[in-house]
């Protein structure tokens, strides 16, 4: 065991899950939310020459996906350092 105590291990895992779930909530919101469930409502709005819902489905969601992974990497590297479990 690389953690000092079981409590340390548990709270690391808890923080890890919280980072993950927050980012997954955004992932769900942009793709399933903006790109599918609310696409018709968002299509009423025009954005840079696109209908907004259509833009989310064919462009925006993918940009957000990329951003999410890099945010995750940054937050996890910080977390690993905090608990001293980085490689």
């Amino acid at each position: 065991m690389s953690f000092e105590s079981k409590e340390q291990a548990d709270s690391y895992w808890k923080e890890n899950l919280s980072i993950m779930l927050k980012l997954l909530a955004v992932w769900f919101a942009v793709s399933y939310g903006c790109g599918i469930l609310f696409i018709d409502e968002l299509n009423e709005i025009t954005f840079m020459g696109f209908k907004l819902g259509f833009w989310f489905a064919q462009q925006g969601s993918m940009y957000v996906f990329i951003a999410l992974i890099f945010i995750y990497v940054k937050q996890m590297n910080t977390l690993d350092k905090k608990y001293n479990v980085e490689e």
Binding site: L23, L24, G35, I39, F54, A57, S61, M62, F65, I69
Partner: peptide
């Protein structure tokens, strides 16, 4: 996508969104 327009979005989101799951989970 050219032939199905907006319905083609499922492939665009589906085949990129999976990487978020891969990376995070």
């Amino acid at each position: 996508v050219s032939f199905t327009g907006s319905d083609g979005s499922v492939y665009l989101m589906g085949w990129t969104g999976g990487y978020v799951l891969l990376a995070l989970c």
